[in-house]
Nucleic acid binder design. Sequence first.
DNA 1: TTGAAATTGAAAGTCGATTTCATTTAGAAA
DNA 2: TTTCTAAATGAAATCGACTTTCAATTTCAA
Lengths: 147, 147
Amino acid sequence: MKEFLRTKGFKMTPQREMIFRSFFELGEHVSVDELYDKVRSLDHSIGYSTVWRNLKLICKVGLAEEVNLGDGITRYDRVTKIPHGHLFCLTCKKLEEFPVDQLVGVLAETAGERDFTPESFKIEIKGICKDCLNKSEEEIESEEDNV
Amino acid sequence: MKEFLRTKGFKMTPQREMIFRSFFELGEHVSVDELYDKVRSLDHSIGYSTVWRNLKLICKVGLAEEVNLGDGITRYDRVTKIPHGHLFCLTCKKLEEFPVDQLVGVLAETAGERDFTPESFKIEIKGICKDCLNKSEEEIESEEDNV
DNA sequence: TTGAAATTGAAAGTCGATTTCATTTAGAAA
DNA sequence: TTTCTAAATGAAATCGACTTTCAATTTCAA
């Protein structure tokens, strides 16, 4: 990783090492605050802006990309070879993924038909996940009991 | 429109009348600032927060919905019967639309398979539009001329 | 006509994202 | 190894879009 960054003109530091490592350990859809909390638990002296800047750097060197779901929080998603869509639960804010390879093919065609050069695709479904749906049904049942 | 709002418990005012009318005249993907500018040109005394609140109201009564493209600006899109995706040009920020009826069908299936109850679908392609691509090609050509 | 509730405009507040700045550090060059 | 310059850091300030507050005004049902 040190070499990888060096070839792009960046230096390695202990903070950067820790931030990069923590980001990849946390997995998918990491927010600045989540990463900051994790890194802070390892090194209390690390600054918020350092975490933020390094998250941006991870994107700049192509290892992650921003995910924006309209809830005011920017999340960072590791770039993998496999394109995927998001299922975003409006109740518990959980994010699930699903494969979209064939859909992306259709979208690329659509773009091509309009002389549009695509750089990225975003496919999102917002709604209620199974768990939250079950919970709200239980609530309704208990309300009925109270009548 | 006055009656429509009344049935939902809202009152009509001259400002509201003007804001609603202007929103629908502006067409698709309207930002608060765009609408504020337009309304201001008609009535200089109208406040920003009034425009903002009425844009929210238009959403609340189901006539528009928020569109979030990750550039920090919330846009408001008139609700039509026809579902559509967005082509967002990263260079000129222009937003084009394309039909997605069959894609949405596929997505609804996908959600169903995961016991996820969908409320809305978002399909976006970010990239470079035809016009901007032509411009950047021209720039490259003129750079070559300079060699 | 009247009064409660909704609406308005200006200003202040919120909050995540981003920048500033003085200091420290990495690592290439001597 | 030492030196030096650009990069990186941490704290704090700033930005900017969005949202709320509050006193005054207006709507419209009774």
